[in-house]
C-alpha cells in the first residue's frame, strides 16, 4: 500500500506511534547522531547523515545481560519487551538486519535476538543526500530500497512524503492516512531516487571479490594493505553487519558484549596459542568474513555499503579501495601502503 502524507500528517503518525510503542529515532545527542528512545516529535531528526552507531545496537546490544547468578542460583533474563518502533532507519541499515537474521535466526535461533526482532517495527526513511563514503548500490541495496522495513518513507521534498508499506503491520499503520498516490507522484519519486543513485559515485564490483579473495589468501598484498591499520575496533563496532561478541561474567551477571576480529585477544586461546596474532591476519579476516566466508555460507556479502567504516576510520583507510585493489593474480603486490 502506498499513501501520500504531508509533514503534519507524518508527525501525527509518529505521535500516534509514541502512544502505543516505544519509539526509537535519530536524534542529535551532543553532536552525535544516534538512535535513541524519543518521546517528543521535535527531537527527531529528519534530514540527517546516517547515524554514528547502526541500529544493530537494538538487537545485538553493546552489552546484554544473558542471565544473573548469585551463590549458585541462576536468574534468567527477562526477555519480554514492550512493542517498539524504530523510526527513520536508512535502507542500508534495514538491510543489515536481514543479514544478521541469517546468523541469529536461520539455523540456531538466538532467543535474545529473536525476541527483540519480533517486537520491533521498522519505519524507514529513504536517503536523498548520500555521503561521499556511501556505496549501498554496490551491495544489492539503494537509497530508496524498502527491503527489511515494515514501512518506508520517501521524502518527495517540499513537505510531501510517499509512504509505502512492506508488511501487514506496515499496512496497518498506513490505513486511512493521507491520500492516494498518483502517477505523477510516482514519477517524482523515481526521479528523486535516480538522482540520488547517481550521486553515489563509489562503485564496487563485488562479482570479482570471491575469486580474488580465494586466490589472494597468502598474497603479500595484505601485508602492505594492513600497514596503516591501528587495530582499533571502530570499523567493527560501527559496522551494521559485524556481529561478533564475547561473553564474560561481571559481578554476578553473565554478559554478552561486542568484540571484534581486529583485537589480538579475540582469537587468543587458553593455551596461549593465537591463530590471528599478527595485524595482517586480523585485518584480512574482516574482508574474508564479509566477502568470502559469508558469501560462501549464506550466498550474500556481509556488507550493505553504509560507508561507516570509511567515514570513521581513524587513519582513513579506504576499505572499498582495499577490496578493489586486491590483485586478480595472487602474489602480485599492488600499490604500496
Amino acid at each position: 500500500m502506498k499513501r501520500l502524507l504531508k509533514k503534519e500528517e507524518l508527525n501525527r503518525l509518529l505521535l500516534g506511534l509514541m502512544k502505543e510503542y516505544d519509539v526509537i529515532a535519530p536524534i542529535d545527542e551532543e553532536g552525535l547522531i544516534l538512535f535513541r528512545p524519543v518521546t517528543k516529535v521535535e527531537q527527531v531528526l529528519w534530514d540527517y547523515p546516517n547515524s554514528l552507531k547502526p541500529v544493530k545496537e537494538f538487537f545485538l546490544p553493546p552489552r546484554e545481560v544473558l542471565f544473573q547468578f548469585k551463590r549458585g542460583k541462576v536468574q534468567p533474563a527477562n526477555l519480554s519487551l514492550k512493542k517498539r518502533v524504530i523510526w527513520g532507519v536508512r535502507p542500508c541499515d534495514a538491510r543489515s538486519l536481514l543479514l544478521l537474521d541469517k546468523v541469529f535466526l536461520d539455523s540456531t535461533q538466538d532467543v535474545y535476538y529473536r525476541e527483540k526482532r519480533k517486537s520491533t517495527l521498522l519505519v524507514g526513511l529513504s536517503c536523498n543526500h548520500p555521503e561521499k563514503s556511501c556505496f549501498c548500490t554496490s551491495f544489492a541495496s539503494g537509497p530508496h530500497h524498502k527491503e527489511g522495513m515494515d514501512l518506508l518513507i520517501a521524502d518527495l521534498e517540499e513537505g510531501i512524503f510517499l509512504l509505502e508499506s512492506n508488511s501487514p503491520e506496515g499496512e496497518q499503520l498506513l490505513k486511512g492516512r493521507g491520500k492516494e498516490v498518483n502517477k505523477i507522484d510516482e514519477k517524482i519519486r523515481t526521479k528523486i531516487k535516480e538522482k540520488t543513485e547517481r550521486k553515489i559515485e563509489r562503485k564496487l564490483k563485488p562479482s570479482q571479490f570471491l575469486e580474488r579473495l580465494t586466490n589472494g589468501f597468502d598474497s603479500s598484498y595484505w601485508e602492505k594493505a594492513s600497514r596503516q591499520c591501528i587495530s582499533c575496533g571502530i570499523c567493527r563496532y560501527l559496522c551494521p553487519t559485524c556481529h561478533c561478541f564475547d561473553i564474560a561474567d561481571e559481578e554476578g551477571e553473565r554478559v554478552r558484549f561486542w568484540d571484534g576480529c581486529s583485537f589480538r585477544n579475540f582469537t587468543k586461546m587458553t593455551s596461549g596459542e593465537n591463530p590471528r596474532f599478527g595485524k595482517r591476519e586480523r585485518f584480512k579476516q574482516w574482508y574474508y568474513h564479509k566477502f568470502g566466508y559469508f558469501k560462501e555460507n549464506h550466498g550474500v556479502f556481509l556488507c550493505v555499503g553504509c560507508g561507516r567504516c570509511l567515514r570513521n576510520c581513524p587513519v582513513k583507510i579506504d576499505f572499498s579501495e582495499v577490496l578493489q585493489q586486491l590483485p586478480a593474480q595472487a602474489q602480485t603486490p599492488a600499490r604500496e601502503g
Binding site: L32, K53, P62, I230, S231, C232, G233, I234, R236, Y237, F257, W258, F263, R264, N265, P314, V315
Partner: peptide
Amino acid sequence: EKCIRCYACRQVCPLCYCSECISE
C-alpha cells in the same frame, strides 16, 4: 557512559604500546 570500548584511543596512542593491555 558514552564509551563503546573500541580501544581506538589505546590503539592510536604511541605510548600504549603494551603487547597486552591491562584491559585485556
